[in-house]
Design a protein around this nucleic acid. Structure first.
Length: 422
RNA sequence: GGGUCGGUGCCCGAGUGGCCAAAGGGAACGGGCUGUAAACCCGUCGGUUCACACCUACGGAGGUUCGAAUCCUCCCCGGCCCA
C-alpha cells in the first residue's frame, strides 16, 4: 500500500493540493517533505504527535523528512487556532524551549542511512534577512486581501481583541520557510494539522510565483475528542507532554488507558504503526469484551514505546498492573517494579518500624488526623500491600516489608503512598 | 459622613439565649455497583479519646448571663440606599 493510501485509510488526510499530482510524484521516487514545530514550550505535547508520526511514516516509506524547529517563527507566534494574542517569549525562554524540543524531534526519525532525515532551525535563514529585503522579496508576492481572507485572521478581526501586526505576519514567515526549503533543500511537500492549511498554501503560492515550481500541501484533521475539544489534556486537565521530565512515562501511559471506547479505533489508526489488518482484528477483539480494554492497553503501550522507548513502556505496564489490578500479588512483585512505582507515588522514609498504622497514615498525609485515619480504617478504606486493614491498632512489622524496605499503602481506590524503611 | 442589611464549618446557606459541633444542599472522602467511566445506592465529613467527657469553632476584642452563633459595647470587612 502506498503512503498516501495508507494515510487516507488511517483518516490522516484532511486536505491536499492536487491529489493525483502528489500521488504521481510520490510514486516516482523519494521526496523531501517538512513539518514545522514551534518551541512554544520546553516540551512537545500530544498536539505535535501526529506531525512527528507522519514524518516517520514518510521516512519509513522511503522519503526524506525534515523536522523544522521554529526558532524564528516561535518568536512571532502563530495565530492559527487561537482566539487571543500570544505572549511573546523572550530570548532566554525561547532558547530553553528549543533546547527542550530538539531531542524530541530527533527521537522520532532516523538521521543516518539512505533516507536520512534532517533537523533544521528556521532561524538559520530568517535571522539575517533585512526588513526591506523581506518586504520586497516576499511581501510583494502576497496580497493583503489573500492574507485577510484566512480563517485565523478573519476570526480574530471580527471578534476578540484583534490581531497584532506581528502575528498577522506569521504566515509570511512560514511561507518563506517553505520557499527557502524548496529552493535549498528541494523540499516539495509540507505537512501539518488542518489549522495550518492557510499558512501552507501561502507557501505553495509563493513557490509557484518565485520559483515557477509546483509544491504540495497535505494536512491531517486535528485530533479531537468526541466532544469536539482538542486532545492534549488528560481527564484531570493535565497537558499530555512528550518529555519524561514533564510527564512520566507512567502517567503518559495512563493518559491513554482512559480513552473512550469509541475513540480506540481512530486513535490506533492515527497514532500507532500497527497495520490496518492488525488494527481491524484488535478492534474486533476489543468490541467482544470492551471491559478488558484491550484497545486502550494496546494503544497506550504502543504509544508509550514510541515516545519513551520499549523499556519505559514495559515498566509502565507493570506499574499499572501493580497499582490497578486488585488481585495483584504484592508479595511477589519485583524490586524493579517497586522502584518504578516509587517515582510515581508520594513516598515517606522512616527510620524503623515502631509507629502504629494510625500515626503512619497521618504522617504520610493520607489521612488528616488520627480520627480521620481511624474512620478510614473502620470504613475499610485503607490497604497495606494490597490487603485491607481491619484493625486500627496494627503496627507494621518487618514481616510486612516488601524487598526488606517497602510498604505500599493505599487509601480508597487511587491514593497511594510508598513507605521506605531504613 | 448618615441610614440600613449582612459577615456561620471547604463553598452556599438555616439557626436569634440552653435540646448547637450547629438544619439543608453542594463539594470532598470511604464503601457498594462497575471496565482505573458516568449515573446510582449506603456511609463519613473540627480535634483528642475505646468511651463518658473535654478542647477548639459561628468576622475581631471585650461585656451581660448559671449558660451566647444567638443579647450589649467598641472595632474591622462587605452589600444596598441617602449625602
Amino acid at each position: 500500500m502506498d503512503i498516501l493510501s495508507d494515510l487516507e485509510a488511517r483518516g490522516l488526510i484532511h486536505d491536499t493540493t492536487d491529489r493525483d499530482a502528489l500521488a504521481t510524484r510520490l510514486s516516482s521516487g523519494p521526496i523531501v517533505l517538512y513539518c514545522g514545530f514551534d518551541p512554544t514550550a520546553d516540551s512537545l505535547h500530544v498536539g505535535n504527535l501526529i506531525g512527528l508520526l507522519t514524518l516517520r511514516r514518510f521516512q519509513l516509506a522511503g522519503h526524506l523528512p525534515i523536522s523544522l524547529a521554529g526558532g524564528a517563527t516561535g518568536m512571532v507566534g502563530d495565530p492559527s487556532g487561537r482566539d487571543a494574542e500570544r505572549n511573546l517569549l523572550d530570548d532566554e525562554g525561547l532558547a530553553k524551549n528549543l533546547e527542550g524540543i530538539l531531542p524530541q524531534l530527533r527521537m522520532f526519525l532516523n538521521f543516518d542511512g539512505e533516507s536520512a532525515a534532517k533537523l533544521l532551525d528556521n532561524r538559520a535563514w530568517t535571522v539575517g534577512v533585512g526588513v526591506l529585503d523581506f518586504l520586497r522579496d516576499i511581501g510583494k508576492h502576497v496580497t493583503v486581501n489573500q492574507m485577510v481572507a484566512k480563517d485565523s485572521v478573519k476570526s480574530r478581526m471580527s471578534e476578540g481583541d484583534g490581531i497584532s501586526y506581528t502575528e498577522f505576519s506569521y504566515m509570511l514567515l512560514q511561507g518563506y520557510d517553505y520557499l527557502w526549503l524548496a529552493e535549498n533543500e528541494n523540499c516539495e511537500l509540507q505537512v501539518g494539522g488542518s489549522d495550518q492549511w492557510g499558512n501552507i498554501v501561502l507557501g505553495v503560492d509563493l513557490i509557484r510565483r518565485k520559483l515557477g515550481q509546483s509544491a504540495h500541501a497535505l494536512t491531517w484533521p486535528l485530533l479531537t475528542k468526541p466532544d469536539g475539544t482538542k486532545y492534549g489534556k488528560t481527564a484531570g486537565g493535565e497537558t499530555i507532554w512528550l518529555s519524561p521530565d514533564k510527564m512520566s512515562p507512567y502517567r503518559f501511559y495512563q493518559a491513554w488507558i482512559g480513552v473512550d471506547d469509541s475513540e480506540v479505533r481512530k486513535l490506533l489508526l492515527q497514532l500507532t504503526f500497527l497495520s490496518l489488518p492488525e488494527i481491524d482484528d484488535l478492534v474486533a477483539e476489543h468490541e467482544k469484551n470492551p471491559q478488558n480494554r484491550l484497545g486502550q492497553r494496546t494503544l497506550a503501550r504502543e504509544l508509550t514505546a514510541v515516545v519513551h522507548g520499549e523499556q519505559a513502556a514495559t515498566s509502565a505496564v507493570e506499574a499499572s498492573e501493580l497499582l490497578f489490578e486488585p488481585s495483584a500479588d504484592m508479595t511477589s512483585v519485583s524490586a524493579s517494579a517497586l522502584e518504578f512505582v516509587s517515582g510515581e507515588v508520594p513516598s515517606t522514609s522512616m527510620q524503623k518500624l515502631t509507629t502504629g498504622i494510625v500515626d503512619i497514615l497521618v504522617e504520610t498525609g493520607l489521612c488528616q488526623s488520627r480520627k480521620d485515619a481511624k474512620r478510614a480504617i473502620a470504613e475499610g478504606g485503607i490497604y497495606l500491600n494490597g490487603t485491607r486493614v481491619t484493625e486500627s491498632d496494627l503496627t507494621p512489622t518487618a514481616d510486612h516489608l516488601l524487598h526488606d524496605k517497602y510498604i505500599l499503602l493505599r487509601r480508597g481506590k487511587k491514593l497511594w503512598h510508598l513507605l521506605v524503611v531504613g
